[in-house]
């Protein structure tokens, strides 16, 4: 059983890890914007509701949230589950959890845009929606790149929690290969995969940061 064969088996799980990673980012970022807007809403009930949601999502383990999302249809609504539901539950669980973190980062980013920007836009006659998308959003994006990079790197590693609801990703595969060979090597190989992937993520985010450095 050579090194290459270990790598090959782990690559099988890497696809699943990438799948969770990309779709979680795809869903959680827009959702995070909505969370941030709801969190800043002047409509008190919505604001309060969002505050409670974010508090729970950030204050309880992601693993528990995944289990709740996966089993809720059965334990709350009595709907029998299928194995196909796992992937949806994983994506919903990850996306909502990460949206809570992104939401708070985005909120800080939005609030850091100086009030003068809003006033300049208001005097020029921009609507609130135009002001948000044309003026506030691009400046917010620049401000949130470093903290978002942190979260994205954490997400790469958090994907391994998908196995809480039996969605087998790379780390689970690595553990299975380790068990099959009673050898610790596959775990290190998996670690190497995570590390290389995160170097790529950090590089990409660094490029984005550089691209946005044309303004302050």
């Amino acid at each position: 059983m050579g090194f290459m064969s270990i790598v090959q088996q782990i690559i099988g799980g890497f696809g699943t890890t990438l799948f969770i990673f990309f779709f979680t980012l795809l869903f959680s970022m827009p959702l995070g914007i909505l969370f941030a807007l709801a969190r800043m809403s002047k409509f008190k009930p919505l604001n309060l509701f969002m505050q409670v949601c974010i508090s729970i999502l950030r204050g309880t383990p992601l693993m528990l949230q995944l289990i709740v999302v996966f089993f809720m249809p059965y334990y709350v609504f009595g709907i029998k589950l299928s194995t196909g539901w796992r992937v949806y539950a994983a994506l919903i669980g990850f996306s909502i959890n990460y949206a809570a973190y992104f939401g708070e980062i985005f909120r800080a980013g939005i609030q850091a845009v100086p009030v003068g920007q809003h006033e300049a836009a208001e005097v020029l006659g921009f609507t609130k929606t135009q002001t948000f998308f044309k003026i506030v959003f691009p400046q917010m994006v620049k401000r949130v790149v470093p903290p978002v990079t942190n979260e994205v790197i954490t997400l790469v590693k958090d994907t391994s929690m998908a196995f809480a609801i039996a969605y087998a990703e790379m780390f689970t595969m690595a553990k299975q290969v380790a068990a099959q060979q009673s050898n610790i090597m596959p775990l290190f190989v998996a670690g190497l995969f995570y590390y290389i992937f995160n170097i790529i993520v950090a590089w990409v985010m660094g490029r984005i940061e550089k691209k946005l450095s044309y303004f302050e």
């Binding site: 100086p114 003068g116 920007q117 006033e119 300049a120 020029l124 006659g125 921009f126 135009q130 044309k134 003026i135 691009p138 400046q139 620049k142 303004f215 302050e216």
Partner: peptide, 21 residues
């Protein structure tokens, strides 16, 4: 404090509102 839009070029600072408002 000027309150120019930092992410727009000089040109776009001038043209954005006339075009979109």
């Amino acid at each position: 404090n000027f309150n120019l839009f930092p992410h727009f070029s000089v040109m776009r600072n001038l043209t954005e509102a006339p075009i979109h408002v």
